[in-house]
């Protein structure tokens, strides 16, 4: 019985969809625009999160050891630091490694290399490389290290951390601005979609006023009268999401070079990311589209069906 009613409701919904086919096409197009706009917002959010996480992953602070710190003391310090929950990894870098790294970094600057070679002994002390789980933990860790007994072995200078922090803050601010702008654009599209769906359903109701009148007259249940219009709303969402999926892949392929050139080493493979998060992304889009269409359909049926 329930299956029978569902199949009839779907039949009426499909009739309603095709009876005003061009109106349905326009409605679906507007919903697609909203979804594209929301997708851009989501993509920008994913990109920012990706860049920030790569940046945080790459951010490491080198804390120089004082001259009086021996290798044994440094290693004890490293094992102590590794026990701190905020620290992801602490690594002892010997003076020799530090010198080598320094030379590598400045291999294109003969003056620095010559100056170094002219020195009789290694000017570098050892250092400890620290990576954290979260970049915002750095000040806390540095503060902690300054207080402890072993602070006399460390030359704490937080310039490196400050630079990284500044970059992250800048990116965050920039992406927030972009996201705010897209939130406004998406909201406008969502509002337009709600209005368009509402009016489409109103016109559908008007077109089918004879059938509706008869249904009510012969005792069709209120849900039977209302449901086809809610289902039409869902059909709009479903078609819009399918179109979005179809256009997403070529759109992402076209966008990829621009994203690569903008984000460079921090770039993200959009198609891959889309494929990895397919269910999540499509689920979110479908949910948003369904909320838009079903709520507007519901409001329209409440106002115009009187059931």
């Amino acid at each position: 019985m329930l299956f029978l009613e569902i199949s009839r409701v779907i039949k009426f919904a499909v009739q309603s969809f095709f009876r005003n086919i061009w109106l349905s096409v326009v409605t679906v197009f507007i919903i697609v625009l909203s979804l594209v706009s929301i997708s851009i917002l989501l993509t920008s959010n994913i990109l920012t999160q990706h860049v920030l996480s790569v940046l945080e992953e790459k951010t490491e602070v080198y804390i120089d050891l004082t001259k009086e710190a021996t290798t044994e003391q440094a290693q004890v310090l490293v094992s102590e630091l590794n026990k701190l929950p905020a620290i992801k990894e602490a690594l002892f870098i010997t003076p020799e490694q530090t010198l080598e790294n320094f030379k590598k970094r400045h291999q294109d600057d003969p003056l620095i290399i010559e100056s170094l070679d002219s020195l009789e002994e290694n000017p570098f002390t050892g250092s400890i490389k620290i990576k954290t789980h979260d970049i915002s933990d750095f000040p806390v860790i540095l503060n902690e290290l300054s207080k402890k007994d072993y602070s006399r072995f460390l030359e704490i200078e937080d310039k490196e951390f400050t630079d990284a922090k500044l970059l992250i803050t800048k990116i965050t601010e920039y992406s927030k601005k972009i996201q705010n702008a897209w939130t406004i654009i998406s909201s406008i599209f969502v509002i337009i979609s709600i209005l368009v769906v509402y009016n489409t359903i109103q016109i559908n109701i008007y077109t089918q006023r004879e059938e509706i009148g008869i249904m009510k007259l012969v005792g069709a249940s209120n849900s039977f009268v209302r449901s086809p219009f809610l289902i039409v709303g869902m059909v709009y969402s479903l078609i819009a999401v399918v179109i979005l999926v179809i256009i997403s892949y070529p759109l992402l392929v076209v966008l990829q070079p621009y994203v690569d050139s903008f984000f460079q080493e921090y770039s993200l493979n959009l198609v891959e990311a889309f494929a990895e998060n397919f269910i999540k992304v499509i689920g979110t889009e479908l949910l948003i589209a369904t909320i838009i269409t079903v709520s507007s359909s519901y409001l329209a049926t409440r106002k115009y069906l009187h059931v």
């Binding site: 019985m1 029978l4 009839r8 008869i214 012969v218 005792g219 069709a220 249940s221 039977f224 009268v225």
Partner: peptide, 8 residues
């Protein structure tokens, strides 16, 4: 039939 279909 429409009247009957509408009422399940």
């Amino acid at each position: 039939a429409f009247a009957l279909e509408s009422c399940g």
